[in-house]
């Protein structure tokens, strides 16, 4: 029992460490949300989704007035899958601190092929004490699984026909089409896949398919291009009056998972950022471009290393000295600084 309390305390402590420092300790020291397993075992996300839709008699048809409002900035808080909770089904015992190497990979969670791949990834991390190359290096979209727990902030905007989930990270927006069927006229998977959903009172139930293969987080297992997810969202009011958005998520991936995997993710309002006037802007990936080096490691291109200004990069057909072509009036061109000095 004492061990369990210490583990819970460590989980909460890690949450404190990965959250904004201004997050009130009282807010953090709430009961850890329980993972709610699906009402019964399902083989596929489609079975799971259709069962829930039948259970909720087709769901609730909301109007603009009645649809739950989750506006504002939110930041990732506790989850049971990776990084922010101190625990993960992919490791035995507490997870390695931060994104460090080490830890004991839990066996039997992944299929043998993906378990071996995950162990290979963890082995590869040891000399660097972290994953030395991350696919996000080139500003690739994180994908829905990682979207749930990444840092930065995000917004949820619900309408009766769509929900728009906007993440500061890579500015990746998920669109959930309410009371609609999956459509894929592209004939291909996409970074965020295709999400459909329905409301059951104040719960939003979402089914996502057709995603690119990706990962749960840096240093965590990959999943395949057959991954599908069921997410059940609800705004929870804590006894102390604070709001927490919670999602019970079940992953279905016959290629990478030995059996469907469930977890819980939570978010709290980013009041510090809101009070400071923060607004999500488009990412500025040109100012500090990450790239893969000759050894397959992440590195950065320093501004101006190739001798071109930002304007020259984006307007090769225009005069190099054209007026008014820095990002902000009066600004020294970012890319010209180092290039001109070396």
């Amino acid at each position: 029992m004492k061990t369990k309390r210490v583990l819970l305390a460590c989980a909460l402590g890690l949450l404190v460490a990965v959250s904004a420092p201004a997050m009130a300790i009282a807010q953090v020291l709430q009961p850890v949300p329980e993972v709610v397993a699906p009402p019964r075992a399902f083989k596929t996300a489609e079975e799971h989704y259709n069962y829930l839709k039948r259970h909720h008699r087709g769901g609730t048809v909301h109007t603009h007035e009645s649809v739950p409002k989750w506006e504002g900035l939110w930041e990732a808080s506790y989850n049971s899958i990776a990084l922010r909770g101190g625990v993960s089904p992919f490791f035995v015992g507490p997870i390695p601190p931060g994104l460090a190497a080490g830890g004991e990979v839990a066996e039997g969670v992944l299929t043998p092929e993906y378990e071996a791949a995950f162990k290979q990834r963890r082995e590869h991390m040891i000399p660097f004490n972290e994953q030395p190359y991350d696919r996000l290096t080139t500003c690739e979209a994180v994908g829905p699984a990682r979207w749930l727990l990444e840092p930065y902030v995000r917004e949820w905007v619900n309408t009766p026909t769509q929900s728009w989930w906007m993440n500061d990270l890579a500015n990746e927006t998920r669109r959930v089409f309410i009371n609609q069927d999956h459509k894929n006229i592209d004939g291909a998977n996409s970074p965020t896949g295709d999400s459909v959903g329905f409301w059951a009172g104040d719960q939003l139930i979402v089914w996502t398919n057709d995603m690119w293969p990706a990962d749960y987080f840096r240093g965590y297992p990959p999943f395949s291009n057959e991954m599908q997810m069921i997410e059940v969202y609800q705004l929870v009011q804590e006894p102390n009056g604070l709001s927490r958005l919670e999602a019970q998520v079940t992953y279905y991936d016959p290629i990478s998972l030995a059996k469907p995997l469930s977890g819980v993710y939570t978010w709290t309002r980013a009041t510090v950022q809101e009070d400071a006037g923060y607004r999500i802007r488009h990412w500025d990936c040109d100012s500090n471009i990450q790239q893969k080096d000759a050894n397959d490691l992440t590195t950065i291109r320093l501004p101006g290393e190739d001798g071109k200004t930002w304007h020259q990069h984006r307007n090769p057909d225009l005069p190099a000295d054209l007026s008014g072509q820095t990002k902000t009036p009066g600004e020294v061109d970012f890319d010209s600084l180092i290039g001109s000095a070396q």
């Binding site: 402590g13 460490a17 601190p97 080096d293």
Partner: peptide, 24 residues
């Protein structure tokens, strides 16, 4: 428990950006 939580928090090394830091 709060003390233990803070102790664990203090010992954590946290990476919260979008790429690896192995180049530093």
């Amino acid at each position: 428990m709060a003390v233990a939580a803070l102790a664990c928090a203090a010992s954590a090394t946290v990476a919260i950006a979008h790429h690896s830091f192995s180049m530093f």
